[in-house]
Amino acid sequence: MRPTPVGSDVMAKRIELKKLSIFYGDFKAVEDVDMMIEPRSVTAFIGPSGCGKSTVLRSLDRMLDVTPGAKVEGEVLLDGVDLYGKHIDPVRVRHQVGMVFQQPNPFPTMTIRGNVLAGLALNKRRLSKSEADEVVETSLRGSNLWEEVKDRLDRPGSSLSGGQQQRLCIARAIAVKPEVLLMDEPCSALDPISTLAIEDLIQQLKEDYTVVIVTHNMQQAARVSERTGFFNIAGTGKPGHLIEYNDTETIFSNPDEAQTEDYITGRFG
């Protein structure tokens, strides 16, 4: 699996989970998740804390590989290719599947420009100055940050506001031209205005990427996603399950499962 070259068109990918179970040592955190995520769409994962939604998200770019004792069973297919196949390089998986975390995490010693190019530098991609300039501008435009920072690219990324830092992290993620973009509660640390800016950006990003977002904000899930998966847990020490996966409008207006209705109406969680 090779990363998409800089400058080429992004080709969003379809994701399919088949009987996905995830373990931390002997503890089964998630059990038997089946799901199809369509390309160029936004899919939201919702559910109470500890139900496994972030764990499933992190399985999609093999982030669990760096967690001691974590083990994945079943299949995670990207356009039919099992990301946990025998000969798959996890580093290349992360070229194709980008991640944006809950807390904005620009590299504090790097400039705004350096942050955008960090992923390419880590992967030893050598660019001419003109190529690097193009990547920086294209990525910052893609994250709706260019006009705000174009005159101060040499200032530290940490000098930006929280919302700007999160958009810088999105620019850093899309600079390597992934095909899937994962977001783990990307607005939980942001103020309402910055949150709306990120939500507007997500709507634009789905034109080029397959976007999967974990959120505790059900109104946000309803606003930004086409499909929603509701995860739940039967009790302490039990594995999380995907209870219902459907069009977002159906999940929030006429869910099939009583558990789903109880959660979205605030009866628990």
Score class of each variant (00 low, 15 high):
residue 252 F to H: 02
residue 162 G to Y: 10
residue 77 L to E: 06
residue 21 S to P: 02
residue 172 R to D: 10
residue 104 P to E: 01
residue 162 G to W: 11
residue 90 P to W: 07
residue 45 F to G: 03
residue 10 V to G: 11
residue 239 P to S: 11
residue 185 E to W: 07
residue 24 Y to G: 11
residue 213 I to V: 15
residue 246 N to T: 02
residue 176 V to Y: 12
residue 187 C to S: 07
residue 191 D to H: 13
residue 92 R to T: 07
residue 134 E to D: 15
residue 259 Q to Y: 09
residue 197 A to M: 13
residue 262 D to R: 09
residue 205 L to I: 08
residue 258 A to D: 14
residue 218 M to S: 04
residue 71 K to C: 09
residue 91 V to Y: 14
residue 179 E to V: 03
residue 38 E to I: 01
residue 27 F to T: 15
residue 193 I to N: 08
residue 258 A to Q: 15
residue 269 G to N: 13
residue 81 V to M: 14
residue 182 L to N: 04
residue 94 R to V: 14
residue 148 E to F: 04
residue 167 R to Q: 09
residue 10 V to H: 10
residue 76 V to W: 02
residue 266 G to T: 07
residue 206 K to R: 15
residue 108 P to A: 12
residue 236 T to W: 13
residue 269 G to T: 09
residue 111 T to C: 00
residue 220 Q to G: 01
residue 180 V to T: 03
residue 124 K to I: 09
residue 269 G to L: 01
residue 233 I to S: 08
residue 149 V to F: 03
residue 124 K to F: 13
residue 123 N to C: 14
residue 222 A to Y: 02
residue 257 E to S: 04
residue 214 V to D: 02
residue 13 K to P: 06
residue 49 S to E: 09
residue 151 D to R: 06
residue 138 T to R: 15
residue 194 S to W: 03
residue 156 P to G: 12
residue 237 G to Y: 07
residue 107 F to I: 10
residue 7 G to N: 08
residue 30 V to P: 08
residue 62 R to Q: 08
residue 56 V to T: 11
residue 253 S to C: 06
residue 118 A to P: 01
residue 190 L to E: 15
residue 264 I to M: 07
residue 27 F to K: 15
residue 258 A to H: 08
residue 80 G to H: 01
residue 159 S to P: 04
residue 258 A to R: 14
residue 246 N to C: 00
residue 43 T to E: 02
residue 25 G to W: 09
residue 227 R to D: 02
residue 206 K to L: 00
residue 153 L to I: 02
residue 98 G to T: 07
residue 237 G to V: 15
residue 234 A to I: 06
residue 231 F to P: 05
residue 156 P to C: 04
residue 42 V to S: 00
residue 76 V to E: 00
residue 264 I to Q: 14
residue 85 G to W: 12
residue 265 T to A: 10
residue 5 P to W: 09
residue 100 V to W: 01
residue 222 A to W: 01
residue 257 E to I: 03
residue 255 P to C: 01
residue 215 T to C: 02
residue 153 L to R: 01
residue 84 Y to L: 08
residue 215 T to A: 03
residue 77 L to H: 04
residue 34 D to L: 06
residue 106 P to F: 11
residue 34 D to A: 13
residue 231 F to V: 00
residue 94 R to S: 12
residue 23 F to P: 05
residue 177 K to D: 10
residue 16 E to F: 04
residue 261 E to C: 02
residue 267 R to M: 01
residue 240 G to I: 11
residue 70 A to C: 10
residue 223 R to C: 03
residue 44 A to F: 05
residue 231 F to E: 00
residue 62 R to F: 01
residue 91 V to N: 10
